[in-house]
């Protein structure tokens, strides 16, 4: 199938701003699915609220556009009910880790077999440019006119600590690597987290005088480096990208079958 066969042309064009990185994530995600040769009927995409979450409307899968921050909780219900389905959960940074932070760590803890994609543009775009828990310090936003004092989360460290069994980071500059990473994440048995650094030129770029979309993408190129690279050793400020964690661990739905076995043991 071609990429366009995975999209709902009836609902396009999309509503993202010119230069937004979310379209690149959509492209990378759809190519990953195409490369894996998955059937559209076996994929359920669950998203929350925000610019990024609108991604579910544009893809021709079973799509569940839910409420702010709770996408993983809905996805948990779908997955446990039908473990054979592939669950993909794209979320924004505020969606996943502010209002949805609790669900994020618990989904990781359970090691449910699903793929969480954190589309991190470090800003609330849909509401007009407020800072998020991933903005970090010294950032301008409409709710931080004197710049942020809030420290940011590191998605990778958080996911690792919460027990995610696949944790990776990529950017909208490294589109091919992003596609490959998402592909590996979907194939991984267990809870996989892919953070994709993505640009919001409309709010984050403009408010912080970084420039347009091309400048922001270039920033990803200049400020990220493969995990453990020599460049990282020389410059600790560089953000590492690649696969940080990829381990095998008991998956929740499979473990639940053991509960069923224990409950039915000795019964007819």
């Amino acid at each position: 199938m071609a990429v366009k066969d995975y999209l709902r042309e009836r609902f396009l064009p999309h509503m993202w701003c010119p230069g937004c990185g979310h379209g690149e994530v959509l492209g990378g995600l759809v190519r990953a699915i195409e490369n894996l040769g998955l059937s559209k009927n076996e994929i359920v995409m669950v998203s929350g609220i925000g610019c990024s979450s609108r991604i579910s409307g544009y893809v021709d899968f079973h799509t569940l556009h839910t409420i702010h921050g709770r996408a993983l909780a809905f996805a948990t219900g779908v997955k446990i009910s039908r473990p054979e389905l592939k669950l993909i959960v794209p979320m924004g940074d505020g969606d996943a880790l502010a209002i949805g932070g609790n669900h994020f760590i618990h989904a990781a803890r359970r090691n449910l077999d699903m793929t969480a994609i954190v589309m991190n543009n470090r800003i609330y775009g849909m509401t007009g440019g407020q800072f998020s828990p991933l903005s970090g310090e010294n950032i301008s936003a409409t709710t931080a006119p004197y710049r942020t004092i809030d420290r940011g989360f590191d998605v990778v460290e958080l996911a690792k600590a919460a027990g995610a069994t696949f944790v990776a980071r990529s950017t909208t500059y490294h589109v091919q690597q992003m596609t490959e990473t998402i592909q590996k994440a979907i194939t991984h048995k267990g809870f996989s987290v892919v953070e994709v650094l993505t640009q919001c030129p409309t709010y984050f770029g403009r408010k912080n005088k970084i420039g347009g979309a091309a400048d922001m993408i270039t920033w990803f190129k200049d400020n990220t480096t493969p995990i453990g690279s020599k460049a990282k050793q020389e410059n600790a400020a560089l953000i590492e990208r690649g696969i940080f964690v990829q381990i095998a661990a008991p998956e929740y739905c499979e473990e639940y079958q053991k509960v069923v076995e224990r409950a039915t043991k000795g019964r007819k």
């Binding site: 219900g77 618990h106 639940y256």
Partner: peptide, 24 residues
């Protein structure tokens, strides 16, 4: 579990309702 049904203890109540909506 005795009848092959699914039970999950969620992290809070809103997650519980979200999960059953997804399962429904």
């Amino acid at each position: 579990p005795q009848i092959g049904g699914k039970f999950i203890q969620m992290e809070d109540e809103i997650a519980s309702l979200c999960a059953i909506i997804g399962a429904s």
